[in-house]
C-alpha cells in the first residue's frame, strides 16, 4: 500500500518533471501559411499559377511574365519586408497593388504562404 503510494508519489514527481510541454513538434504548413495559401489561391494563382509556377491562366497575356514563385533560391534572396512591399505597392506595370485591398496581417500571411510554396520548388 505504502509502497504503492510512494511509487505513485515518485512517479508523479517524475511525470511532473517530464510533463512540462515538450518542444513544438509541428510540421507541415503553419497556420499563417495555410491562411496565406487560401489568399494566394484567391488573388495570385490566375497569373502566378496554382503551384506558383508562373503559369496561371492569365500569364500568357502579361509582359513581363509573372514571377515564378516555386523557387527556393529566389525566395531566400528576398526579405519578408521586400515581398510584403511588392504585394502592397505592386511591381512594374503588370502587378497591381494590393495594399488597399489586403490588410497588413493578411499580407504577412500571404508572405508566409509564399515561402511555403517557394520551398516546394525543392521537391520534384
Amino acid at each position: 500500500m505504502i509502497r504503492a503510494l510512494l511509487l505513485t508519489v515518485a512517479l508523479a514527481s517524475a511525470a511532473c518533471r517530464a510533463a512540462p510541454p515538450s518542444p513544438g513538434q509541428r510540421s507541415g504548413p503553419t497556420v499563417a501559411g495555410l491562411e496565406g495559401a487560401a489568399l494566394y489561391a484567391r488573388y495570385c494563382t490566375s497569373c502566378h499559377g496554382a503551384q506558383g509556377g508562373g503559369d496561371g491562366v492569365n500569364a500568357p497575356n502579361l509582359d513581363p511574365r509573372p514571377r515564378l514563385h516555386r523557387d527556393p533560391a529566389w525566395s531566400r534572396s528576398r526579405s519578408d519586408s521586400a515581398l510584403a512591399a511588392a504585394i502592397r505597392d505592386g511591381r512594374g506595370r503588370a502587378m497591381p497593388r494590393f495594399g488597399r485591398t489586403l490588410k497588413p496581417h493578411e499580407i504577412a500571411d500571404l508572405v508566409a504562404g509564399l515561402r511555403e510554396i517557394a520551398e516546394k520548388g525543392n521537391r520534384p
Binding site: 510541454p21 513544438g24 503553419t30 499563417a32 495555410l34 491562411e35 490588410k103 504577412a108
Partner: peptide, 16 residues
C-alpha cells in the same frame, strides 16, 4: 523562443 511552441505567439493573424 526557438521551437518552444508553448511560449511562441499565436500563429497566423487570427488574434487580430
Amino acid at each position: 523562443t526557438g521551437t518552444r511552441a508553448v511560449l511562441a505567439p499565436h500563429p497566423g493573424s487570427m488574434l487580430e
